[in-house]
Design a protein around this nucleic acid. Structure first.
Length: 497
RNA sequence: GGGCCGUUAGCUCAACGGGUAGAGCUCCGGACUUUUAAUCCGGCGGAGCGGGUUCGAGUCCUGCACGGCCUACCA
């Protein structure tokens, strides 16, 4: 990390600052309040893409602006390149047009400066669409040297800390965040078209809930109470369904006070949706439609390459029960939820999966699923019917009380969505809350406390409903083919400099 | 949290068994009216921070800071 004391940097910045001071001394404002442009660079590139012969002019004058990213001087003719996101437009500056003063001002421009240009749209002899400038104006002086355009910026720490530089010089950074924007727009559009209402529920919770995770704690001064940054919007969204909104969703930030890694950022974006009368089969159909649309609209295809391997979102995704997958992975077709925990622990040991004393059969089966099954599933797969003991908010399966009507969508060996037929029975919910509360009292700071208001909402009556949660950042990782969550979050959490 | 690795010029990267640290791009000066990584000539500039060993440390030891990877918890 540069400590910014190098004499080279000081010198480079001093040169730029001297130009800034000289401009001010001449009464010219290097940071004007606004500038009139009549076209984006993309507009010009598109409008004249197939017109104007090399060496000819269009007769049309445009006013454009952008960041100066390249300069090629030829004495009495200087080529500039302006950039605006992914669009680049060449500007030609001729002594015969701009005069000595104008050429001097062009010479004083530095790479990174924001520049407004007006002039005729022309095509150079070599065929490059250009603006033959008759007016060049500095509209935002850059005082720091940009990384050179050819090598870009690779240092990861600088890319994350100084995302403004990363975005300015690395096309791939812009690509990822464009995909992100399009994918989220697609998810939202699909839900809205299906009649879902987008809502916003509290980020500040009086008690954590909706997921088993360690929360961030903060304090409200006027109320003099601790508040928790939400670990999930789930319980509030389900209150809304209880209140009579049949289809709701929220796309928003959640916060979990846990480790950082290539797949974990303390704040991340979650999509949650709830639909009255639906069960988890309906939610599977929704999930598939959402992801297929996100891929299509963000990438233009449902076939992507992830980590060098082909991944296809198209078609209907297979559905496999947890117990079947675990039976296959352990080669123990006799395994069932009635198998004694000690026996299941032996099976786990035989597969090299460590388990802890006191774990139930369901808990061990879940561990086996996580260790043995999940990493092997590459194409999108709905893994369904999770043990009830690892699913405190999911409804029991209508045909088997030992499991829940829950699914996780696994893609590329990782969880992409988690959903279930929601638990709507207040008595069952109270029992499960109490189990969580006991775990919490026993020292499990990820377990949820009893949420009496949520229970009250349930007691007023809830329709059957299907709920869905999608980790948006991880979805974007899949679509954009990046291996770390820091690459899909503009400003990932880092230790302060 | 644990283990391993990294930090050299504005950017991207080198070199060496401990002996005056190199290159490309950027930048500065000069030439050039059709370039597009323009070209040509000349030039400036550097070891994350702090200790120690040594005649001498970017190189060895050590503390700190930040980052990366693996691992643990998790989505």
């Amino acid at each position: 990390m540069s400590d910014e004391t190098g004499s080279r940097l000081d010198g480079l910045m001093a040169e730029r600052r001297a130009k800034l001071d000289a401009l001010r001394a001449q009464g010219s404002d290097p940071y004007p309040a606004g500038v009139t442009v009549d076209a984006s660079l993309a507009d010009v590139l598109e409008r004249w893409r197939d017109e104007i012969d090399p060496g000819e002019g269009s007769g049309h004058r445009v006013a454009v602006a952008g960041r100066l990213i390249a300069r090629r001087g030829h004495g009495k003719l200087v080529f500039l390149v302006l950039a605006e996101a992914d669009d680049e437009l060449q500007v030609m500056c001729q002594l015969a047009v701009l005069g000595d003063d104008g050429m001097d001002r062009v010479a004083d421009l530095d790479l990174g400066d924001w520049v407004a240009v007006a002039g005729e749209v022309v095509r150079s002899r070599r065929g490059e669409l250009s603006v033959m400038a008759d007016e060049v104006r500095l509209i935002g002086k850059s005082l720091r040297p940009m990384p050179d355009k050819w090598h870009g910026l690779r240092d990861l720490e600088t890319r994350y800390r100084q995302r403004y530089v990363d975005l300015a010089v690395n096309p791939d950074a812009r690509r990822v965040f464009t995909i992100r924007s399009k994918a989220i727009t697609a998810l939202r559009a699909e839900l809205l078209e299906r009649g879902y209402v987008e809502v916003e529920t509290p980020l500040l919770h009086a008690q954590p809930g909706g997921a088993t995770a360690k929360p961030f704690v903060t304090h409200h001064n006027a109320l003099d109470i601790d508040l928790y940054l939400r670990v999930a919007p789930e319980l509030f969204l389900k209150r809304l369904v209880a209140g009579g909104l049949p289809r709701v969703f929220e796309i928003g930030r959640v916060f979990r006070n846990e480790g950082l890694s290539a797949r974990h950022n303390p704040e991340f974006t979650m999509l949650e949706s709830y639909e009255a009368y639906a069960d988890y089969h309906a939610v599977m159909a929704l999930t598939q439609a959402l992801l297929q649309r996100a891929a299509r609209e963000a990438l233009g295809t449902t076939t992507v390459t992830y980590d060098g391997r082909k991944l296809d979102f198209a078609g209907d995704w297979s559905r496999r029960t947890v117990i079947d997958l675990v039976r296959e992975a352990t080669n123990r077709p006799d395994l069932d939820y009635d198998t004694p925990p000690a026996t299941v622990a032996d099976i786990a040991a035989a597969s090299g999966v460590p388990v802890e004393d006191g774990w139930s059969t369901g808990r061990i089966v879940e561990e086996l699923r996580d260790r043995l099954v999940e990493p092997t599933l590459w194409e999108p797969t709905f893994v369904i019917d999770y043990p009830v003991d690892v699913s405190p908010l999911a409804r029991r399966h209508r045909d088997d009380p030992r499991v829940t009507e829950r699914f996780e969508l696994i893609i590329a060996g990782r969880e992409a969505a988690n959903a279930f037929t929601e638990l709507t029975d207040p008595d069952d919910q109270r029992t499960r809350f109490e189990a969580q509360a006991r775990a919490r009292a026993a020292g499990d700071d990820e377990a949820m406390p009893v949420d009496v208001d949520y229970l009250r909402a349930m007691e007023f009556g809830m329709p059957p409903m299907g709920g869905l949660g999608i980790g948006v950042d991880r979805l974007i990782m899949l679509l954009a083919d990046v291996q770390t969550i820091r690459d899909v979050i503009l400003f990932p959490t880092l230790r302060p400099e």
